[in-house]
Each structure stands twice: as C-alpha cells, then as structure tokens.
Amino acid sequence: MSHIHLPDGVLPANLWLLSYLAAWLWLRSALRQSEKEAVQRKLPFVAAMSALMLLTMSIPLGPLPFHLNLTVLTGIVVGPWLGFVAVVIVNIILSLLGHGGLTTIGINSLIAGLEVVVGWWLYHRLLHSWRRSWRTLLATGLALLLSISLSLGIVGSSTGMLDLAGHELHLGQDPIAEEQPAATLNVSTTADMGGEQGVIAVKAELLGLTGIGALAGILLAGLGLESLATLGIISYLQKVNPDLLQDEGPDIESGGQR
C-alpha cells in the first residue's frame, strides 16, 4: 500500500547492486542479532507473519490499487530484526510471481524493512507511554510516510521525475480535464526539446486533483487505510491475545499465549 514493488530492469545496475549489498548486510546483522533471541525457536512466527503478509499483499482492497502490507504490524509482533527477515522472505516469494523483481529484492526489502523498524521503534520505544490507539496510528502513519518518501525519492531520482514534480506545480487547471471521468488517470506528455533533454510533464488526475495533488492523495489514502487497518487488528489482538503485542514478542512455549 505504501510502496511500489519495483520490477526488474527499471533501475540502474549500480543502484540495485548497491541495495542488494545493503540488504545482505542488514540481513546478516538481523540474523546475528536474532541469535540472542533464539532465532530457531522464533522461526515459526517469522514464517507465519511472512505467510500473512503474502496473503494480504495478494488481496486488492476493492477498486483501489492498494493492498495491506502488515509490515508495521509484523515489526510490532516479531520485532525489528526478525521482522526484516520476514520482509526478505516475502519479497523473494513475491518476486517469483511477478510482484517485484529478482534483481530488486534488495531495494524492495530495504524500503519495506524501513517500515518494520521505524514502526517497531515508534510503537515500542518512542511513543511507549501514549494511548495504544494513538500510538498505533502514529507509528504506522509515520513509518509509511517515511517509506513512501523513500520510494518516491528512488523513483524520482532514477527517472528525473523530481524535476517533473516541480514543473507540474506551475501548471494550471487543464480545461479538458473537466470532461474526463472523475477517477481516471490522465497522462499527458509535453516535450521541451530546447534543452539537451526533453522535459516530460505527467498529469495524474484523480477526483479533480492534478499532478502532485493526485499522487499525494492516492498515497495518503493508502497510508490512512493501512493505519486504520493496523489499529483495528491491534485492537482485536489486544482483546484476545495481548501478549502478542509485548516488546519481547510472542511467547514461544505457549504458542503466543502466556
């Protein structure tokens, strides 16, 4: 919901190789840290959260181009280190099914892993004394906001669309746009061949919003939905099995119940 599953062949080789290296180092570090937490005993929970993430990522939410991620929830339940392991597992399986790419497992994992770590840190550390509902909403919202920014930054910097965004802010309302259906994606291009490179203007139009407004609207809607969904799930878990939401994660011996 918060990020694009980057496919193969769209990123420059140095970027995906570098992100592979970074993800590998993070993974090794996560596994080393997790040794202290008896990683072998917590493995079933990592696999379970991976399976659940796979499931929710495969169900679109009605007509919206979103799906739940459950990355922040995974961080809250299994912790930041094992949460990243779960994210890597999900990205490996998804990449084999056309949801992401094999060469982009690294960068996709880094982005989703950021959600896990930031979400866990906000929920269990920084906002620990806050009410649970506010804590959940803020932790999820801020973690997703950060990963959205990173996603957009990567897409923007590798395509030059960051310039485009600035260019788009100066564009006025297009009169033709009013004739379009309310929720369509209207993409137009203009080439300014005066410079060395053409400048492309992309106008995404959704419910009367254009350009950056529409893009921000789509992403914020996704962010809001994921935050609300995480809040709903955590409220339920708090009622039926509050031990799952403890900082040290679910108790192994009792299958998640103390």
Partner: peptide, 17 residues
C-alpha cells in the same frame, strides 16, 4: 480487521504446531 486479527493469532499457533 477482526478476521485478520484472528488469522494472525491462529496462524502463529499453527506455525508453532
């Protein structure tokens, strides 16, 4: 959402088994 919550609790038990 409650169904997902139930699935999470259930799947964690299932994974353990």
């Amino acid at each position: 959402l409650h169904a997902i919550g139930y699935l999470i609790a259930n799947t964690l038990r299932l994974s353990q088994r």
